[in-house]
Design a protein around this nucleic acid. Structure first.
Lengths: 231, 231
DNA sequence: CGCTACCTTGAGCGTATTCAAAGGTCGTGG
DNA sequence: CCACGACCTTTGAATACGCTCAAGGTAGCG
């Protein structure tokens, strides 16, 4: 595998020069993992962080009574586990693969060496963590201030946005996983989707493809300015 | 005001040497603000970050329909607004003073200069952001996986822990604010406190002082292994 | 002492969860 | 290619938790 090429292509390391990519490639270790395979757990010592080369990874917490909450779904080219690198101790959550994946692992100590010597790399990491923080603040707001229809609407609009405002949103994860990501359960998500369909806000094209029929009403829904009919 | 002394005393800048504290003091600007005064809003350009010298600051989001959610309460010696320094753009939330406060403001550009030149400072900031991220991940879990009694129990135990596992927890914020911080409303918080009292888990000593009667049962409550009686 | 803000209490309601079960879909192996 | 099983999705009915609305009580502060 051409590690350097993959490293240069990630957003996190973009803008760094060839030499820096080379240094990173030197310490990166390729790891493969199968669908459902655990990558790290809450209790694991944080020995480094990862970048997803191909596949998909799920970051989640488990409450004492066994319920899961997905914090983040990591797609190709995105990093995860960075927190463990800079704050000593274990990982703050669990990670497993949603599908067969190939990862690059950056060992903590060697990576820190690089960061210390290279201020442009450290600025990249600071920006990365700041972005993560922004996302999580939004997630906190979503969970506490919005109902499930609004959360789903927000999610769909965000996905659409990331695809050039396409009307078609292809769900990258199963509906069960999506329910969990939105902080609810499959039954509730299913019911709400049905209501969105019957209100002509969205339509299903294929099993995992949704067509947005009205961005505007979806937006109103996301902002709590519209309510779904009751059925 | 002796800026350098205050800077040296914050956890964020502890462990740095005298020279570094001096540099930080040079760029720091003292700001005073009165209770309820806005420090920055969502829309403000992130021109720098703050440290609370004295007083108390509230970080919160506002949903489109006007509901507030406190993300964080910042006490003395703690920083806030760091995110805006490293990810371009505006602040991710609102900030206002819960009481008359004195702050130190670190202008973005000048602070970034220091960070770029000083790897120990950048490591401090990376650790700081990572810690913030940890907290928020926990908050997401709390809000989505736990009910209000469990969230309150967790909060009380955390406060107790930070005070040497004292049995007495002195609320630093009003119950309304606490309710909001826990993602609920004053009415609900009041009812749940009443049930905790009647179950002999806590007792009120003064208006804002709570005595923990059973750490163990509070812990069970936090972990969802105990339910309050219904009344 | 009176005002204001905060806290408590009650009743009713709505949203989402739980529990239970049936219908679909996908991958695997026969 | 079809049959089977596992998992995902959908649907229904009942429940529960927390919220809204409304009002009364309490405490701090000028």
């Amino acid at each position: 595998m051409d590690k350097k090429k993959h490293i240069a292509e990630t957003a996190l390391f973009s803008g760094l020069n060839d030499q820096q990519h080379e240094e990173l490639a030197k310490i990166a270790i390729e790891k493969k993992c199968r669908k459902k395979q655990m990558i790290f757990t809450n209790d694991d010592e944080g020995l480094g962080f990862y970048i997803v080369i191909s596949g998909q990874v799920r970051i989640f917490r488990i409450s004492p009574d066994g319920k899961e909450q997905i914090i983040h779904v990591i797609g190709e080219g995105e990093p995860f586990g960075e927190v463990a690198v800079f704050s000593n101790g274990n990982y703050p959550a669990y990670a497993d693969a949603l599908r067969d994946s190939i990862l690059l692992f950056f060992p903590r100590d060697r990576f820190i060496e690089l960061v210390k010597m290279d201020s442009s790399l450290s600025m990249k990491m600071l920006a990365d963590l700041s972005g993560r923080l922004r996302e999580l603040v939004s997630k906190v707001e979503e969970l506490s201030l919005k109902d499930v229809p609004a959360r789903l609407a927000t999610y769909l609009l965000l996905q659409s946005e990331q695809n050039d405002n396409s009307d078609i949103v292809h769900l990258e994860i199963s509906k069960s996983q999506l329910a969990n990501l939105l902080g609810t359960i499959p039954e509730t998500l299913s019911r709400i989707m049905r209501r969105m369909v019957s209100d002509d806000i969205i339509a299903f094209t294929k099993a995992r493809s949704i067509r947005i029929l009205s961005h505007e009403r979806l937006n109103d829904l996301a902002f709590g300015e519209l309510r779904l009919s009751r059925m």
